[in-house]
Design a protein around this nucleic acid. Sequence first.
DNA 1: CGCCTAGTTGAACAATATCAAAAATAGTGG
DNA 2: CCACTATTTTTGATATTGTTCAACTAGGCG
Lengths: 222, 222
Amino acid sequence: MNFCSLCDVRPQSICAEMSEEEIRSISRTMAHHSVKEGHAIATEGEPVTHLNVIVSGTFRLVRMLEDGRRQITGFMFPGDFVGMSRTDSSYTAEALEPSLVCSFAHNFLDQMSEKHPGIKDRLIARGSSELAKAQDHIVLLGKNTAEERVLSFLKLVGRARRGEDRFSPRIYLSMPRQDIADYLGLRMETLSRTFAKLKKTGHLKTVSGRYVELGEAFELAG
Amino acid sequence: MNFCSLCDVRPQSICAEMSEEEIRSISRTMAHHSVKEGHAIATEGEPVTHLNVIVSGTFRLVRMLEDGRRQITGFMFPGDFVGMSRTDSSYTAEALEPSLVCSFAHNFLDQMSEKHPGIKDRLIARGSSELAKAQDHIVLLGKNTAEERVLSFLKLVGRARRGEDRFSPRIYLSMPRQDIADYLGLRMETLSRTFAKLKKTGHLKTVSGRYVELGEAFELAG
DNA sequence: CGCCTAGTTGAACAATATCAAAAATAGTGG
DNA sequence: CCACTATTTTTGATATTGTTCAACTAGGCG
């Protein structure tokens, strides 16, 4: 059976431009991995041999400091790419839940891109959009208060995970509080208090474990 | 006369892999711009038509928030690339001093890359290293104290501008305090106080306007 | 039910921001 | 070269925000 034909993220992936025939041929040789919670598909400092396209699940990108402090530089959702360049990975990418990825050897991509020059353009464009996301994150950390950070974060996951529960004002967080805190540059306690405060101001209706219900004052649009 | 033959940054640029003959032919058609202080070679939200390679000078990458707050997402030095993808620019790039850039139309690059497939690989690799730099910045803003931020910043410009004054413990800052503060996610006053504190701790010997002399306790190596 | 982990809350504290003013520096025209 | 102004940078006093450390609570699971 042809796995690719079921693929939700194909239009956003590098295989979008391939013909049905090519897809079939790839589908046979391709490595589809399922990744267990907590397992890494890339490790900080190690060489990257494969481009991974996330088909389902969520990943966190982790940077460790020498002294054990940890910063999360991003979260990756279905359709996102991990390992776009052969250079050593600048982060560790760990699954937050059982996930599915589609793995392309860079050697294979080089080969493939002779036929489909668009593949490399797509990688360049993806790279730029990753950079733009990183810059959003920089602005968030450099200029925003705790409340602004938490709201931005909720918008981020709200957008990324839309479709699972379309238009629902209820968001499921696939990561523990510590990960959110390490992403937002806050302590877990501050995050907790900020959730509480946002409940008071009507931005959130309920915050219960990993479920957050958005309130009146919250605008997903922004 | 052949301008490219004098180019300091060629080995790091996309023209590194071209033959002498090609360089000559490019050199004739190429746009070498001099950019006045304060002028932009890319504007947030506007489409990018050219890849700019910085030949000399310094640029700041600026993001404006709706309310007028400003975040600087990076500084660009000779050898760096601005505008690697055709997508709309995610920042404004402004010259901090009279600068020189070498400008390649993306159309031209596409054409060129048929002959030199390495060009796109180079762009992808550059993109990754930009992303890695952005992630360093994220860690800086998310996890570091004011002192750590200022020290990292000095290391950054120290490395980038080495060569002008090789091994000198004296660093010239091509940007005003406000830009440094907006880069580090601090207020100017805090930056100033942090400089003062670092002088006390022996990390800096003198801080006078745009010149900073490093002290004993400062390790450029890290 | 009791234990374990994840998350929340409280009170004191530290770091950075804010606002105001002083000092240093860079330009400008005589 | 100097005096004068405008701008940038530093310093001071105080307010705010987020951190720290400790205790407490809520769920999940044997």
